[in-house]
Design a protein around this nucleic acid. Structure first.
Lengths: 336, 336
DNA sequence: CTGAAAGCGCTAACAT
DNA sequence: ATGTTAGCGCTTTCAG
């Protein structure tokens, strides 16, 4: 069943049917619209988007870029966070008449290739890993890119993230409100990773606001994932414990620290308090349950899509959107 | 840059270029092949698959069907398992020249719609939730469907799963080998869910082989997810504990039981032993670490793709493939 | 408001 | 081994 068939059955031209389908309702009389729609429904006709794209150039296809990472990394580092993002983005795109092409990408050429092969309308990059790659794509500023969790500040692209600085500020302030004054920051931070930089800034701001000193010995420059945390936790002993609370930048890292420390007989929250980041469901599965900073992951995906669609529709709108963070109290912080 | 441009620059016809690209090397001389390839490389030309699909009918697009489920369910029930499947399927398809259209689906019509709009070459259904829906799709047996984790036995479709029966057999046998004789099976099983049926069969077989009786009181018909487990765990008290070991059908369920029981002062493995299923990375994050049955999730995805590609290429091959299960010892089972 | 012609970029089928 | 013709299903453009 094609446009032509529908047109024939209705006794009108293909263009009329096309206009009905595209919602060009000013160009067709109400009577024909109804007639055409009836026939469309009768045959369950849906337009072939390959043909439409070929002649109109707009595919309604959005590239969802995931990293080409090894299986182990995928499962331990990004698991639930990614599923939540992917599923929220998929839902929002589909409910707006767009389709999702999922593709893992290791170099800029592959992105250009996808644009040529499929006439992609836009692309969403799921992780800030892609920051440098993006600028190496030809005409990237005209390709409707959305970067998630990025602070790269590349002109012409869109950003969806959370208020990272405020997140760690909340975590740190909460520990302070519970009587903690010696608070460890457990994650590397350096200018190259702008997101971690923001999170560190939040920690520093909270300390300063409460007249606490930022001390070198309260900074553990670890890689903020499960294994980085585990290793650090294992290095802890009771006499080396020069802090009472820890701020981390991921739940997985926090769980690693907890697990590593336990192997040395150190327990959360008796020996030290601990706060995660992301509020993954594993927070409820650990013992003790992990207090964490929620960052509204699904909402972040949804806003990424909305920004993108606005841009595709030529609407002026914000180029950066941030979700709000919130402290979720569980069992890993104790009152001193 | 189009086929036409390449043809012109090479001084040959479009068909010659087309034949070079499609690998029809018997129809073109070695010299022209080289010349054409040089020009292709020079311009970074990649064919437009919209146009190719329009004329050839084969899109090289595979539909990856995920369920339309609510956010909370996604994160707690399927998180890592799904990520692992999706990423392995994506990698294998792309490295074979196919592309992945990700779409959540709630009813059969949507699948037919995707076939019409995008000339999909085949579809992979990520969860057995889709069993009934599949048979309601028109000409489903000619649409190159792969069902993951399904025992539906619908003719004309392909199946990728693990040896579920052997999995629970291994778990049960392991508990028996550790001196357990009163072993609880914690998951509903009924003819409608064929996978759970298989898993229950494995439990029963292990008991019988060791001359242990299958007892009604050692069957807990719970929904095998975190919340089902949690609820059941909370219902346990020391005097109601009429078993020493538990076989479950998912890690999440096992973690739920562990957590719920702990709230009543019952501990794993001191008060009872426990085995999960899936071997998710959370098994290493819990305390105690969860002994589990690994089912090679990535491999399962990979085999799904290979079966599908064989069928698309007209190769005769198996219609069912199962990955092997393996017991991964950790800390949740003790020797009696 | 409706329609006819031309063409998007490619390949199947048939020449040569 | 290479070229020509026709057409995939749709939209753009231009006429009425």
């Amino acid at each position: 069943m094609t446009l032509k068939d529908i047109a024939k059955e209705c006794g009108v031209s293909m263009m009329t049917v096309s206009n009905v389908i595209s919602g060009n309702h000013k160009k067709v009389s109400a009577a024909t619209i109804e007639k055409v729609n009836a026939v469309i429904k009768k045959y369950d006709y849906v337009p072939n988007l390959m043909a439409r794209t070929l002649s109109s150039k707009s595919s309604h296809l959005i590239l969802l870029v995931i990293p080409t990472i090894k299986k182990e990394e995928l499962s331990t580092l990004y698991n639930q966070y990614l599923t939540e993002l992917i599923s929220s983005i998929e839902r929002e795109l589909v409910s707006n008449g767009y389709f999702v092409l999922l593709h893992s990408v290791a170099e800029p050429k592959e992105i250009e290739m996808m644009y040529k092969t499929w006439n992609i309308d836009g692309a969403i990059f799921l992780l800030p890993l892609f920051n440098k790659m993006v600028t190496e794509v030809k005409d990237y500023d005209k390709k409707n890119f959305v970067l998630i969790d990025s602070y790269a500040d590349i002109p012409g692209v869109l950003y969806s993230r959370c208020d990272d600085e405020l997140g760690t500020y909340r975590a740190t302030s909460y520990l302070i409100s519970k009587g903690h004054t010696r608070i460890l920051y457990a994650a590397e931070h350096y200018a190259k990773n702008l997101l971690l930089e923001r999170r560190y800034a939040g920690y520093v701001r909270a300390l300063k606001e409460h007249n606490l000193e930022v001390q070198d010995e309260l900074y553990a420059p670890i890689v903020p994932n499960y294994y980085g945390g585990l290793e650090y936790g294992k290095s802890l002993t009771r006499d080396k414990l020069n802090f009472t609370g820890v701020v981390t930048t991921s739940d997985m890292c926090a769980l690693g620290i907890m697990q590593g420390a336990r192997e040395n007989g150190l327990h959360v929250p008796e020996d030290f308090s601990l706060i995660g980041f992301d509020n993954l469901s594993v927070c409820s599965f650990s013992n003790p349950k992990l207090t964490s900073i929620d960052q509204q992951t699904s909402e972040k995906g949804l806003r990424a899509v909305q920004m993108l669609l606005d841009r595709l529709n030529g609407k002026e709108g914000p180029t950066v959107l941030s979700t709000e963070t919130e402290l979720i109290e569980r069992e890993s912080v104790r009152q001193l």
